[in-house]
């Protein structure tokens, strides 16, 4: 099994998790990398993407695991250069290596939220939001399978930092940049629940729009996960 990390940004952020599998399966074919196929009625190339992500979120640290077909000699170092020319715009493989750690050790995700205020960041917004997110408990409404449920998301994130600073891709916007470390799985925290919490508890600081980017994947000790 090999593992590659890739960026997902620009218009590629609208590709859903399932569609991304198709996109990557086809890209491997175009790159001439034959993957191991599943057995059965409709054989398909085996490939798995860690931590499914909602559409609209960009990422610097997506992971895909794949297994070359039997007899295929593949130097992982070559993989980015072979895949990148055949990927649609917005997807870029940054690295590839063998023997990745077990995914259960992927515990935390570092993420960045850009809170965009069309009429300028309100005075005191950064302080108020910081104070809100540092409360000992933060209950939000989550849409579960059985309808809306109230969940305390406070244990699912840490290290919140806020700065009045625009998104690097949109330097002219007036925005707050919020970085945090959030739970990657069991259960995962959708970082977009944070603006929902702001709307509920501090509606005067509700951003007009929130952009989200995954920055790094981390293990339980907050070390980089590979």
């Amino acid at each position: 099994m090999l593992r590659a990390s890739f960026r997902k940004e620009g218009n590629a952020v609208w590709i859903s998790h399932l569609d991304l599998m198709r996109v990557l399966q086809r890209a491997f074919r175009r790159a001439g990398i034959d993957l191991k196929h599943s057995q059965g009625f409709t054989p398909h190339p085996e490939l798995s993407i860690a931590l499914p992500m909602s559409v609209g979120i960009s990422s610097d640290c997506e992971l895909v695991d794949f297994t070359p077909a039997e007899g295929v000699e593949l130097d992982p170092a070559e993989v980015p250069a072979r895949l990148n020319p055949v990927l649609p715009a917005g997807l870029t493989v940054t690295d590839c290596w063998a023997e990745g750690r077990k995914l259960k050790h992927l515990v935390w995700l570092e993420a960045r939220l850009t809170l965009v205020y069309d009429d300028g960041v309100p005075d005191g917004a950064a302080e108020a939001i910081q104070a809100l997110l540092d409360r000992p408990e933060l209950v939000v409404e989550k849409h579960g399978k059985k309808g809306p449920v109230e969940v305390d998301i406070r244990p699912m994130y840490r290290d919140v930092r806020l700065k009045r600073e625009p998104d690097p891709a949109h330097p002219r916007e007036d925005a707050l940049t919020l970085t945090l470390v959030c739970a990657a799985q069991n259960p995962t925290l959708n970082p977009l629940l944070l603006p929902a919490a702001i709307e509920r508890y501090a509606p005067e600081y509700r951003p007009d729009f929130t952009r989200c980017r995954r920055l790094r994947v981390l293990d339980a000790e907050l070390e980089a996960f590979r």
Binding site: N11, W14, V55, P88, F209
Partner: peptide, 19 residues
Amino acid sequence: LERILPTVQKPARYVGGEY
């Protein structure tokens, strides 16, 4: 577009950029 795409079904069909 960036603001409305998260609210619609299957947004990938509205952005182009395909291989």
